[in-house]
Design a protein around this nucleic acid. Sequence first.
DNA 1: GTCTATATTTTGATAGAC
DNA 2: GTCTATCAAAATATAGAC
Lengths: 208, 208
Amino acid sequence: MDTPRRRGRPGHDLDAVLAAAVRLFNTRGYDATSMFDVAEALGITKSTLYHHVSGKEQLLSMAVDRAVDGLFEAAAHVQDLQGPATVRLQKLVESSVLVLAERLEFVTLLLRVRGNTQVEQHALARRREFDTLATELVKQAQAEGGIRADVDPATAARLLFGMVNSLVEWYRPERGHPEALAATVVRLAFDGLRTIAVTGDQATQEEH
Amino acid sequence: MDTPRRRGRPGHDLDAVLAAAVRLFNTRGYDATSMFDVAEALGITKSTLYHHVSGKEQLLSMAVDRAVDGLFEAAAHVQDLQGPATVRLQKLVESSVLVLAERLEFVTLLLRVRGNTQVEQHALARRREFDTLATELVKQAQAEGGIRADVDPATAARLLFGMVNSLVEWYRPERGHPEALAATVVRLAFDGLRTIAVTGDQATQEEH
DNA sequence: GTCTATATTTTGATAGAC
DNA sequence: GTCTATCAAAATATAGAC
């Protein structure tokens, strides 16, 4: 959205540093990635890397913030909507998939955070906040009779977004449109795997 | 199943060492856990720990094997069954949940492996094998008309088991029966979240 | 089986020149 | 912005006594 303003000619800007770091964190693991590894990937030395960032944790912090911010922007947008909670829940799932696809590497990193440092604990706290929000929406949808009431709302929310989050394990942006994937996830989650009475517009086979 | 035969009186046996290591690997992360940490948790020194195991990687190797073996035992059991593929797929989901619950810490560790060492690559290869097997079952179930054919079988299998695997993020054995949870997962995955025509036996609200 | 060293490497991070 | 040099701490692992 915001145009990253060009910096002074040479070297790397923060975004490039962050991108390289996050890629390494995801492939090797955060702890297994050294600042030397990050510097090497950028073609600079460790000292130069420390000129750009204050430390390893700052890289993690910036990365998870991008993921969390995206998720909450989507949630805020959905909460502004009118209409049945069931539809809003569908929209939340849909936009979560889109955010995950758009910020794949950041969300991937976020989902692997375990809470051992303050940065990680903060990220976990915001994830729980999102969870609560989703659970509330499930409750409302159950109350209005849109989704089944024979499952605990917290359990339903966790399984639903567990399915969504599992996308980071295999989704690759180069194959298939995120919109189609989002639609598939919503369909599977809400209508289930089982064969249903075909109403007419479900004849398209999709690949991702 | 197999009675762990008692060792010579004193000290720790391999199972105790493995259990302590896996617990730490899951809470702090594999790379962030040092051999000193494992030794300390057992109340012994690093040297003594090295008397029990050949190194850190062996601990990881043994742990992921326990998870993978459990999953494949379940898969083999399901493949021996007769009847429609749709039912076998349901059984595979169900028993996967049960294995996950029974070997929670080992499966948790398995699902976090990224493939940076040979041990991890081997674990990933076996996971892919399981994936292929699940995808095949989805295909068969689609062919016999049991589950919807408007979704790519690989995508369906990944989303289905993505939902199952997400249980490691929140399931805790002390709360609720694994059997009830497995039933909930199957119901949600196959019949979906949406309210359906109530046929009579779906009045029970479950908690996990 | 358990310990006290100790070797060796790698880590995150800083100082200071250009 | 980038480098060389360096530090202090922590890591995996081994040697060898009891």
